[in-house]
Design a protein around this nucleic acid. Structure first.
Lengths: 343, 343
DNA sequence: TTGAAAGCGCTAACAG
DNA sequence: CTGTTAGCGCTTTCAA
């Protein structure tokens, strides 16, 4: 089936392709009668101009690429949704690239997106969370960012001026800790996360800082990392419970590990929050799904996506914007935390 | 910054653009020394050919569009992941379009994807689940499917031969019901879903069929629909519990409503499964997150995505494929169901 | 207002 | 093996 082009329209409407283009884009005055005639033919054939050909000339594709580590982690769909809602009005469509946090795949996608000439890229996870991101990996992104607008979400690249939108995870962790301390807890543990990923490091640092500030000892055996899964939450909670003394409160790196922690605690016959308080992070839908519902830190995930697009759009239009946008997280108190009770 | 093209490469390497193209695509023999020379220049400038220009000629973009109703529902990211994993190896990139189930937005995206000349489209939710999909809405997709390969996932269009990959939801619902009946339950309710959406209808039908087959009465007040949310699960469970007689088992349209049902049941002091059995549907990650873990029906979500791409790829290559691929769901027994106990 | 013609960056005959 | 050239489908001067 022959694809129909502006030439076909032009011929049938007895005008030139230039005129067809003009009515298509409303880019120059066209006599009303001519316009109607052309539109009629366009209607008749349901003609849609080839976006590829257009983009080839205009140098704009209306496409944004989003690279993220794991779309099955409910945090990311929320970011995506925020981004898409903001972008749709502006006429963008999204490439979604699931990197699995794998640097190789990130590179492949970066390259593919560049070839496809996306107007901008939103990058999450993977290398931009690594505490020691290799110079090659970093400069790959930094160099790309000089050709195509790039926004880093909740991450950073060593000595590169790439634009970022961030949730203040240090503050978030402090909020959670302060809450626990206000409830009278003194024996607090931290579980989950990857020790050399920046978000984890920031949280651990805030955790320790809050302990110190309040004259509480830091017990190394109460700072357990591994990954971000429910499974890991279970394991680490079990490990905590194996110790001679058990904490009265546990701060978790995210909602997944918090859920795991809750499950293990309950299995072991502990009541939450009477026997042990647990706080999550991210405020994913998961947190209201568990029993008891999770006290957690909301990092305004949706907003993260939205802001990224707003910024990206400004960048694409050549406007100057601030390098770092910091979003303020909020503590959401639900059922999994309660006052300290002496045993 | 000037974008560099094959001409720049050609000039610097002292060859013609044709030769550059040849080494780029390995489409005709090139003398080894020439090839090296060209490659060196390509390396030097980190040249990447413009995919738009390529696609304009080749009539293939390596892009697949996926339209789905709600990326924050964990069912869909899983489908996406299956699709992407399969597609990545084949060199495709994905447009992800979140329709919100809104027909208007579906149409907008359909149109945008067509303009962008995607190689194929995977369509989920929205109109293809409506029991009475208007002829215009249906033919919009059907007509598009004659120009671009389209796969419908877990849905259908009235009298249209569009290719589909489906999970057998009738069988799935029967499996769940049989399980409850085998456990000795006779007072079974069904909650959740939208009454005029096909997946809900199929499940309700299977639900009723199983009751009849086993000589059990169908109580209209025990078939409650509204939507697919956790909130709705809570509400409908509450309504069930308000009745004079309460069911000993509840089948839910999906895991969300099942979680809601579990929460309300526990709040009301019921033990699960001792006092009431609850079964979900979809086997989303949610189901292992709740306490007790959900007995549910796995519809092999990941596989759904994977198969869609396999099929789409065949269609794109002009191969003949069967119109309907039916995947067999499986019952996953966990903790939320148990034998009937007389009260 | 309108048309002719020159590209956008690349591939693919067709010659040599 | 390699170069010339004509497009792919559209927009955009430049003239008329």
């Amino acid at each position: 089936m022959k694809t129909i082009t502006v030439y076909d329209i032009a011929k049938e409407a007895n005008v030139s392709v230039a005129t067809v283009s003009r009515v298509l884009n409303d880019t120059a005055p066209v006599k009303a009668s001519t316009r109607e005639k052309v539109n009629a033919v366009i209607q008749k054939y349901q003609f849609q101009p080839n976006a590829l050909a257009r983009s080839l000339i205009s140098k704009a594709t209306g496409m944004i690429g989003m690279i993220l580590p794991d779309i099955t982690n409910p945090f990311f769909p929320e970011v995506f949704k925020g981004a898409e809602d903001e972008a749709r009005a502006k006429g963008y469509t999204f490439f979604l690239c699931n990197s699995g946090g794998d640097y190789r795949r990130e590179s492949e996608y970066l390259s593919a997106l560049k070839e496809k000439r996306v107007d901008g890229i939103i990058f999450l996870g993977g290398r931009i969370n690594a505490s020691r991101c290799s110079p090659e990996l970093a400069s790959e992104v930094a160099e790309l960012a000089e050709q195509i607008p790039v926004i880093l979400v909740n991450g950073a690249l060593p000595k590169s001026g790439v634009h970022r939108v961030m949730s203040d995870e240090t503050l978030g962790a402090e909020l959670a800790m302060q809450h626990l301390i206000d409830l009278g807890h003194r024996d607090i543990a931290f579980i989950g996360g990857v020790a050399d990923m920046i978000p984890t490091m920031q949280k651990v640092k805030a955790f320790k800082k809050k302990l110190s500030e309040n004259g509480l000892p830091i017990r190394p055996e109460w700072v357990l990392n591994k990954d971000f899964s429910v499974e890991n939450g279970k394991e680490l909670m079990a490990e905590l419970l194996r110790g001679s003394k058990r904490p009265s409160a546990v701060m978790c790196v995210n909602d997944f590990t918090a859920v795991g922690a809750v499950k293990t605690a309950i299995e072991r016959g502990l009541r939450i929050p009477e026997d042990i308080s647990i706080v999550g992070y991210d405020d994913t839908p998961l947190s209201t799904t568990v029993i008891p519902e999770l006290t957690t830190v909301a990092q305004r995930t949706y907003e993260l996506g939205k802001q990224s697009v707003t910024l990206l759009h400004q960048l694409i239009n050549g406007e100057k914007t601030k390098k770092v946008t910091m979003l303020r997280p909020e503590l959401v108190v639900r059922q999994s935390t309660g006052p300290y009770r002496a045993r």
